[in-house]
């Protein structure tokens, strides 16, 4: 079957790519656009390692079709830092040792940013439920939750 041409915006930049009709957004990001920061842990929307923002909404890129990106805005982990300036979450994840192997980290960061974008003062329980769609097998989540709390506190102080 002929490939589809998709025009989209990724991390603020206009991008075009060709994809199969049944290709996932995750595969298109990774294979067509070279953005391998989003990871595939399950391919079924259970692990959250491929979390991206699609028009401001948190989605698993493995459950979205690449053609759905047409005319829309996609944000990935690669767009989270502003130049050399890390997002506060990226910094606190490093400071709090909130990653061990790091495979789930991009997904957690994208998901946590989506939380803090709508609520700068989430409770621990809210953080835990918001991040319940992201699996981490290394950390037991303790340091991840603390890193999110620390980033939120810093962002509140600056706001």
């Amino acid at each position: 079957m002929a490939k589809r041409h998709v025009t989209t915006t990724v991390n603020g930049e206009p991008r075009e790519f060709l994809c199969e009709v049944d290709q996932t957004l995750l595969d298109a990001l990774r294979d067509e656009l070279g953005l391998t920061g989003s990871k595939e842990g399950c391919g079924s929307g259970d692990c959250g390692a491929c979390s991206v923002m699609l028009d401001g909404r948190l989605v698993c890129a493995c459950l979205a079709l690449a053609v759905e990106a047409e005319g829309r805005e996609v944000e990935t982990i690669e767009g989270m830092a502003e130049g050399e300036r890390l997002h506060p979450l990226q910094r606190t994840f490093l400071e709090e040792a909130a990653l061990q192997c790091g495979i789930c980290t991009p997904g957690f960061l994208v998901a946590a940013k989506a939380l803090l974008d709508r609520d700068l003062d989430p409770s621990e329980t809210e953080i835990r439920y918001w991040l319940a769609g992201n699996l981490c097998r290394c950390t037991g989540y303790d340091k991840i939750v603390r890193a999110v709390q620390k980033a939120a506190a810093e962002m509140r102080a600056e706001a």
Partner: peptide, 16 residues
């Protein structure tokens, strides 16, 4: 799959 083979998620746990 991770849906039916259920590893602990953040909301299952307290701080450790």
């Amino acid at each position: 799959g991770f849906l039916d083979y259920r590893v602990p998620v953040a909301s299952d746990l307290p701080m450790i």
